[in-house]
Amino acid sequence: MRRYGMGLTLTICLLVAFWLLMLVIVPNITLFEQSFRPYLPVTEIGGPKDVYSFDNFLKVFNGDTQVTLLGFTFNIPVHVLTFSLTIFYSILVTILCFCLAYPLAYYMAKIVNPKTLPTLLLLLFIPLWVSEVLRAFAWWIILALKGPLNSLFLFLGVIDKPVRWIVDYNGVIIGLVYTYVLFMLFPIYNAIQSLDTNQIEAAEDLGAPWWKIHLKIVMPHAKPGIASGSVMVFMLSAGSLLVPSILGSTTSQWFTQTIDQWFKDALDWNTASAYALLLLILCTVFVSLAMWVFKVKLSDIAK
């Protein structure tokens, strides 16, 4: 206040308040309220049929589909299946992001010459200058049947006929990993960077092989970074609509696409709201559960 003066302080506070209230709180409350109301013709809104109920939420259990998994065949509601697959593939994306980001983060934090680090960071950031839509389409082109990837592999003799890459969830996984890997990289990089190099050396001096140093010293230290990276990648993946829409195949369906269809195709905003709320709540529950299992505190992530 003393530094910025009355006018500027007030402006900033009001802007933050506006942002919080109008762009975060009000839309979420609207969504919450709408989700409990039935989808009615305009003339009946506010009428006797417009009462609160859980009907919209229970719609996820409508319409069974047959699934065969590990030799077992069973029936499952189609939207529950979509939701489960979304969670499953989001976990897979998170794990893949970790496998890519951890070695790179360690390399950047402890091995690379500090002089070349800015160049490396720039190389990592340049793709972010291009819009997400364009990047997803770029992958769509790269992975196409007659695209550059197949041409390259054919030229190198890795494959003898073009491979259809975008089948099932492959395209979605590749797209999501590419889009969100940096959200994993930087928290882990920050965490590893704060580790005293002497501790790594001390472990080595005491006879630890390299993998044990990572398992016992580096990873426990980087746990908050790994946790916050994983939470971000998981939440963003599960909530992504763009990548599954562009890089999805005929056999892939993301839960956000189902929500989108309720909004835009069925024009049933109430059920869409209920589904969106379900996704939010269940993902939050899932993340909290994972944090409890891995003994990560919320305050660790906030760091």
């Binding site: 005293d196 002497n198 501790q199 050396e201 001390a202 080595e204 001096d205 005491l206 006879g207 630890a208 092989p209």
Partner: peptide, 14 residues
């Protein structure tokens, strides 16, 4: 270092 019969005590102890 993990193959040598030496043990180092670091300045900051580590």
């Amino acid at each position: 270092p993990n193959q040598r019969p030496t043990a180092l005590i670091f300045q900051n102890l580590a």
